[in-house]
């Protein structure tokens, strides 16, 4: 099983997002004052400063905006993986998320800009929080 670094708490801005991950939910925020989609999570709206953000659950589908296949790293939990793709995925609800695109095979050949992907909550040996990664639809 995967053994990625876990989020660390107490950290109040991102705690609801990670609590969502435990429920299998990809959560994001919208601002009722200015209608902005807010991500990554913060207690205030990054467009207007409003403090009454509402949490929503994404359908978990999006498009690869860009990516890079990491061939060399010195990060615990990743050195064992071999080549892996780091990506920005644009979710259909309008937020951009740093994540991984996981493929069965060589990511240099299988990951593409514009590719449609869906979230997958990957369970971790390293702790209680599953990590939301994406796989091609």
């Amino acid at each position: 099983m995967a053994s990625r670094p876990q989020p660390h708490f107490p950290e109040p801005d991102t705690k609801p997002f990670w609590d969502g991950a435990k429920e299998g939910e990809l959560r994001y925020q919208v601002c009722p004052s200015c209608n902005a989609v807010n991500f990554t999570p913060t207690a205030h709206c990054q467009k207007c400063g409003g403090r009454d953000l509402a949490w929503k659950v994404s359908k978990g589908e999006g498009t690869v905006y860009t990516y890079s296949v990491v061939m060399q790293n010195r990060i615990p939990g990743f050195q064992e993986l071999g080549a892996y793709a780091v990506a920005y995925v644009d979710l259909d609800e309008g937020f951009r998320m740093l994540t991984n695109v996981m493929v069965d095979g060589n990511p240099l050949e299988l990951v593409k800009i514009g590719q449609r992907v869906r979230v997958d909550f990957e369970k971790q040996d390293s702790g209680e929080y599953p990590i939301p990664v994406f796989r091609p639809i």
Binding site: E11, I75, V133
Partner: peptide
């Protein structure tokens, strides 16, 4: 080639789990 480990900030909590190196 190191990642953003450590933690407990609004950024590292969202980036640390993904093995994003500076070069990537």
């Amino acid at each position: 080639t190191g990642g953003r480990g450590g933690g407990g900030s609004w950024q590292t909590n969202m980036e640390g789990p993904y093995g994003s190196t500076l070069i990537s």
